[in-house]
Design a protein around this nucleic acid. Structure first.
Length: 432
RNA sequence: GCGGGUGUCGUAUAACGGCUAUUAUCCCAGUUUUCCAAACUGGUGACGGGAGUUCGACCCUCCCCACCCGCACCA
């Protein structure tokens, strides 16, 4: 059922319930930017936490990094971004196709076959900015188009501080910026987005082994996000389509409401980045094994996730419609770890002070334990259940007249709509 | 960026060159309600933005912005 959800439904729910709003909406918006609302902020944080816990916190070979968004422009020259991001594009004057000049063979448009083109124009996918008050060529810098370079530029620092055994990884969560020509499809392609990236440094001969391990670990993580395995697909990216630095890439695609699209990438970047830095900086990137083996420049496996895409996948996978008492019900079947609200507490009737007082008491107790707890006395009880369903709250605790007698409450499950009566003292263990 | 389309409360909609605009739902407050969007009362809330034409523009014209569909782009 969730497979048929339209993007529009997701966007609408996100706005109505406070997950995502269009950026600068009150001023007419700004294309390619989105703001997280209260629930979206929490959902995002939970996705980040799950990623971090899975790939960093629970391992002993990972190192955190949080590098600056503004970097020395030499970084982007060395990485190849300045060159590859500034390819001149020409426009076919017949069919208006925009093409990289170096793609055109025989001076003919590959789309329509005609041979008249406009003058080449520079397109730069990096956001330019100026550092300091004087705006000239010397002051130009860029907002990073990927977080990866912040890791590579700190490789030597981390090796010097910790001297970890290879293989080891460096992980970073942070914003990246790309001046996309046409941002589209909700948060799928935006100009400002958040990456969760790892650069995993390996011995050159060990890359395939590490690559395969990451491949498996990624599938496990996607499962933990609640993404059904039959909607996740691996795409072996052919030579011609791979990024300039990569010798092997698998795109992990997901069946989004907009179709099958890339959710994340797993790339073997070879020693491309470290070698570039070594050449550009003159500093050695060699790693000397502690066992006295031959020094080498590590190769890199890069699993690269986008938070927005992950969130869009999570939301569209979670969206479910069914029927309760003959009426349509929409709910988010979010994994309990990800639900922005873990449990909602309600008095059965809001105008009975004794129920409301008791409900407040239970609310406070659960709030202290779980944090993500909401007190809800809007409308009537059925309405509250539906509202909580729609934001993916796994449990609703209702305080009724029996509660006052015997300290029991009903715990209602989002997925089954069934209720169990349990002792207040047992709520926490039931949900943990 | 190109071509086409769209733009009225959060959502879905109605009307009109002439009282700053309809209805439903949502939302908020209250009454009520002993478990799945009940009912009743009241309330907040919109013509995407800016120019122009006009005595008067949500409506006509132009520009901008945003969104949708194609194309291209997505190292």
């Amino acid at each position: 059922m969730s497979g048929e959800v339209s993007l529009e439904t997701i966007v609408s729910l996100c706005k109505r319930r406070g997950f995502m709003y269009q950026g600068s909406e009150i001023y007419g918006g700004l294309a390619g930017t989105w703001d997280y609302g209260p629930l979206g902020t929490v959902l995002k944080r939970k996705i980040l936490n799950l990623w971090w816990e899975t790939f960093v916190g629970s391992r002993d070979d990972m190192y955190d990094i949080d590098s600056a968004i503004l970097m020395n422009p030499k970084v982007w020259q060395a990485s190849g971004h300045v060159d590859t991001f500034t390819d001149p594009l020409v426009e076919c004057q017949n069919c208006h196709a925009r093409l990289r000049e170096d793609y055109i063979k025989d001076k003919k448009c590959p789309v329509c076959g005609k041979d008249k083109f406009s003058e080449p124009r520079q397109f730069n996918m990096m956001f330019k900015t100026n550092i300091g008050p004087v705006q000239d060529e010397k002051s130009i810098s860029y907002l990073r188009p990927e977080t990866a370079q912040g890791i590579f530029t700190n490789f030597k620092n981390v090796v010097d501080s910790f001297y970890p055994d290879v293989p080891f990884g460096m992980a970073q969560i942070g914003k990246a910026f790309r001046n996309e020509i046409s941002p589209r499809d909700f948060i799928f392609r935006s100009r400002e987005f958040e990456q969760m990236e790892i650069e995993y440094f390996v011995h050159p001969e060990e890359w395939e082994k590490a690559f395969e391990q990451w491949r498996k670990d990624i599938h496990k993580f996607l499962k933990a996000l609640g993404l059904p395995a039959d909607k996740v697909h691996e795409l072996e990216v052919p030579d011609a389509d791979r990024a300039h630095y990569s010798k092997r890439t698998i795109d992990f695609e997901f069946d989004f409401p907009i179709g099958r699209e890339e959710l994340l990438g797993l790339a073997y970047r070879t020693d491309f980045d470290l070698m570039n830095i070594q050449k550009a900086s003159g500093k050695s990137m060699e790693y000397r094994p502690k066992d006295g083996g031959a020094p080498f420049v590590p190769h890199v496996i890069e699993p690269s996730f986008g938070v927005e895409r992950a969130m869009m996948a999570v939301l569209s996978a979670a969206y479910t419609e069914d029927e309760v008492n003959g009426e349509k019900r929409a709910y988010l079947k979010l994994p309990a770890d990800l639900a922005p609200v873990k449990v909602a507490v309600s008095p059965l009737l809001k105008n009975k002070p004794e129920l409301a007082d008791k409900a407040r008491e239970v609310y406070k107790m659960l709030k202290k334990e779980f944090g993500a707890v909401m007190y809800d006395d809007n409308g009537n009880i059925g309405k509250r259940y539906r509202r909580q369903d729609e934001i993916g709250t796994p449990y609703c605790v209702t305080i009724d007249f029996d509660t006052l007698e015997d300290d029991t409450v009903t715990v209602r499950s989002r997925d089954t709509t069934e209720q169990k009566r349990i002792k207040i003292a047992g709520i926490i263990t039931t949900m943990s």
